[in-house]
Design a protein around this nucleic acid. Structure first.
Lengths: 151, 151
DNA sequence: TGAAACATTGACGTTCGCGTTAACGTCTCT
DNA sequence: AGAGACGTTAACGCGAACGTCAATGTTTCA
């Protein structure tokens, strides 16, 4: 186990990472293969080591898949937008010229805005469905009350 | 065209039904095959005839698929619950005994409640995602403002 | 040191949700 | 009656998203 000098205990092998995220090892490898996950670090023998950030990312992917029903291709796009964000943070004090930085941020902003719009749209329609369901529930309740008062 | 004596114009062939719902003929047949749609009425030659209720149902299925990202199997469960509801309405003035009616209603109520919980759950998590996205957006905006005031 | 537990890379298999094609029957209109 | 539009079933095909071996290497612990 030759981790970096100051490495803490927080690296997980694929089995543990799978357990914590509720996915399978196969799925994690598959996501890596499909470019949703960047190749994680490895230990000397070649075993994958997932960082805390990696695990977070995996969980976000899972949420987008389960919650929003996005395809992996769609998720990949969103994630790439996220990468831009992280890159911006990393390059913050570098020698990149100002115009380029601003352009990056602007693009990230646009993508985020699109994502927000998409979510708002979905939530709106879900609210409609919720409404009809709630009304239906009330009807049942009044029906049941009428019924119980009438032997 | 030998429809029922009092039939109005409201029956659609599969092509029209597909156009109105934005699905394909193949998809409609597939849903029927999978039990999501009850076998519709047919005309003499064997052509499928979809009623207004059928079309409504198709649209609801589509919404659940697109909006909620449910699998067809999951949708089928929800739809079956819906059938219970329709059956209750149809049998309303029949000779079924009171206890049985009440039991049916109660079951329908429970299913509806479960669906509501499911939707609320999803909406809750989506709201969380929305929140982080909104915050991210604000950060971008403040960053861009700082940038533009600093040549 | 050796066995048990865990990992690696292939490669093939499976299920879902339809698309597509083939061969054929029906409806409608002139 | 005949042509063109529309429909029918049956069957094969396909991409997505993994599951499931199989053969092999690595870690760990007694």
């Amino acid at each position: 186990m030759t981790l970096e000098a100051g490495a803490t205990i927080s690296y997980l092998q694929i089995g543990e990472a799978a357990d914590r995220t509720g996915l399978t090892q196969r799925t994690l490898r598959y996501y890596e293969e499909k470019g949703l996950l960047k190749p994680p670090s490895r230990m000397d023998g070649g075993f994958r080591l997932y960082s805390g950030d990696d695990v977070e990312r995996i969980e976000r992917i899972k949420e987008m898949r389960d919650l929003l029903g996005f395809s992996l291709a769609e998720i990949k796009e969103m994630i790439e937008a996220d990468d831009v964000r992280l890159q911006v943070r990393a390059e913050w004090r570098s020698d990149a010229d100002a115009a380029e930085k601003a352009a990056r941020i602007l693009k990230a902003r646009e993508v985020t805005e699109a994502q927000l719009a998409l979510i708002d749209n979905k939530m709106g329609k879900m609210a409609e469905m919720r409404q009809t369901l709630a009304e239906r529930l009330e009807k049942y309740d009044t029906l049941l009350k009428q019924w119980s008062g009438q032997p």
